[in-house]
Simulated scan of single mutants.
Amino acid sequence: MLTSRVIPCLLLRGRGLYKTVRFSNPKYVGDPVNAVKIFNEKEVDEILLLDIAATPERREPNYELIGDIASECFMPLTYGGGVTSIEQVRRLHRVGIEKVCLNTAAFQDRRLVKESCDSFGGSSIVACIDIKKSFFGKYEVWINSGKTNTKEDPIRYAGELARLGVGEIMVNSIDRDGTMSGFDLSFLKSICSAVDTPMIACGGAGTLEHLSEVIGTAKVNAVAVGSMFVFHGKHKAVLINYPTLSQLEELQLANVSS
């Protein structure tokens, strides 16, 4: 039985939840507190909350809203977006965040990554790498919510993040975000083979089979899922959903600790 987690990934913009396609065209999908309450009822093990507007708008996290969401969340909550200092990491932990996800700031300031891991423990720090394939088929790291191409090789960068002590690395495919077309299995297999740090796959989930494939083929430790858990049917009506325990067990996705 596999022990990989299946994590709802919620995108925060302002005070609402949105869903994007390839990091563009955000569509409103509901209120974050209500979504968390529904996931509570479905006994989700963990939630990932990413503020996709904080970094582009050059503002820090909305601690009041995050605290309201965390107070309703019965499971561990990971937050990312607009985090640029160790004091912000500390404040997020104080309002109820278990893990802090660093993306743009991690790339721009390796000292922040190291200091955060040293101060709070690597298990409380997740590094996110947004990747996109170039016209020539080369994978590159993008930052600033997918607006800035660093030209960095993601596998080399992941190795550096691992050496800095992060507990997990999330690999988020811009090309597959919101498409529900399946994961980039080849790349995920390559990065998981090259770096020992636990990996979270994000970008492309559309079916339970997609989850089974990425865990079985790439050997990721967790899967972060957006559209699949907020949309339903061919017309993509908004409906918060999550697989039942029996469905996860049938696909050998259930966490042993559940």
Rank of each mutant, 00 (worst) to 15 (best):
V6Q: 11
G16D: 13
L17A: 05
G30Q: 07
G30T: 06
V33P: 07
V44G: 03
L48N: 10
D51L: 10
A54R: 02
E60H: 14
D68Q: 15
D68N: 11
A70K: 03
S71F: 07
M75S: 09
Y79R: 01
Y79W: 03
G82T: 05
G82S: 10
R90D: 10
R91F: 10
R94Y: 10
V100T: 01
T104V: 06
T104E: 05
F107H: 12
F107E: 10
F107V: 15
V113E: 02
C117G: 05
G121R: 04
G122R: 05
S124R: 15
S124F: 09
I125C: 06
V126P: 00
I129N: 01
K133P: 05
E140C: 07
G146F: 09
T148W: 12
T148I: 15
T148C: 14
T150K: 08
P154Q: 06
A158F: 00
G159R: 02
L161F: 05
L161N: 03
R163T: 12
G167Q: 03
I169W: 01
N172P: 07
I174Y: 12
D175Y: 10
M180Y: 06
S181H: 03
F183A: 04
L185M: 03
S190R: 15
M199Y: 00
I200H: 00
I200Y: 00
A201E: 01
A201W: 00
C202Q: 02
G203S: 07
H210K: 04
H210M: 07
S212E: 13
S212C: 08
N221P: 00
A222I: 00
V223N: 01
A224D: 00
A224K: 00
V225E: 01
S227D: 03
M228W: 08
F229V: 05
K236S: 15
K236L: 15
A237L: 15
Y242I: 13
E249S: 13
E249C: 11
E250H: 13
Q252T: 13
S257Y: 14
